[in-house]
Design a protein around this nucleic acid. Structure first.
Lengths: 180, 180
DNA sequence: TTTGTTCTAGAATGGCGTTCAAGATAAATT
DNA sequence: AATTTATCTTGAACGCCATTCTAGAACAAA
């Protein structure tokens, strides 16, 4: 017993755990997914996960990096499209990640690492938004503030359920107010 | 043993539990406060709480009602003040409740009751915001959308740390954009 | 005095994230 | 080829948590 599966490439093992965790976190949310379940789905013992990740929050961060980098790639492919269209697409993307974004916020107070990830992510998004706004003709000084407004509106849209049409209306309104 | 404390007015007992829970939830957040700790602080056995409340989420709802009704009273006292001032005061109020607002969002997916409370609370705040905006001269049709924008911005401010000055700037900017 | 309702608490349950100790496997060194 | 070392894997346990079970105490009504 205590059979070892070293013959399976160990680099794939970590990958597999991240992949399974990504799926489960997206489907059922962070809190509703137990380490035991992740392990079962990945075909390893529960404590094996702890060889690759310090704890559950670290696994969450790995999942987040994975999800964000993929989303970024898909959003970059859409440059040339108008800002509103891209925002809606971005929101749809993030929304397909289920409650992941909400999960981040609820873990921020528990884990300094998640906190750090969150802050950095916010800074990045804010920077991107500012340059988008400046590009679109907003005064440089005000772009900083407008970016925050826009981000908070988007977070609100993500955190609360909306019909697609409602979402479009709200985004339109936000842009209209900013570019009035 | 199994000494009973009936001589202490039982209506005060429930009150005491709610009061202690309010303090602890505000101080340390919902997830970081255990039922055992609440019970200890209230001077009862852990399971006694379950006579008064179905579960921890129900206790949270009782605490929320308590906090909100108090906050509402203090905000009403400020009518006559301009909208921006009142918003800042409101945010300061809510912020003094620690991570309570964030805790709601993180419990919404776990408890249908918390979900219902959250939805109702949102509807109420939205209604109030709409009438504020209409009062302040915003077109009735647009007030609906602007209210959502405003609420999401406020939620964003609550969910993320800001210096007082930053907060004022962001609120000013939001109002400026809406009333442009 | 008896009966019933309201309340209390010790003990147990089951689930969770996490740690421990004991190995198995494969690679590196002799 | 033999031995040591580093890398992995695991069953079993730990401590904490929300919650439930069961027995019974306190009081009110009959």
């Amino acid at each position: 017993m205590a059979r070892n599966k070293r013959h399976l490439d160990p680099k794939i093992k970590k990958e597999e755990i991240e992949l399974v965790a990504t799926t489960l976190f997206k489907e059922k949310g962070y809190e509703n997914t137990s380490m035991a379940e992740i392990a079962r789905s990945a075909g390893v013992a529960a404590n094996t996960i702890y060889w690759y990740f310090e704890n559950k929050d670290d696994l969450l961060i790995a999942v987040l990096n994975r999800v964000v980098s993929q989303a970024m790639a898909e959003v970059v492919a859409l440059r040339e499209q108008p800002l509103g269209t891209r925002l809606l697409k971005l929101i749809a993307q993030v929304e397909s990640s289920g409650s992941l974004m909400a999960d981040i916020h609820s873990r921020v107070s528990h884990s300094p690492k998640v906190q750090a990830w969150h802050d950095q992510f916010h800074a990045m998004v804010e920077q991107l938004s500012v340059s988008e706004l400046v590009n679109a003709g907003v005064d440089v000084e005000e772009a900083q503030l407008d970016a925050k407004l826009l981000i908070y509106v988007i977070e609100g849209l993500l955190a609360h359920p909306h019909k697609l049409q409602e979402r479009e209306q709200i985004i339109d309104q936000a842009l209209k107010r900013i570019f009035a």
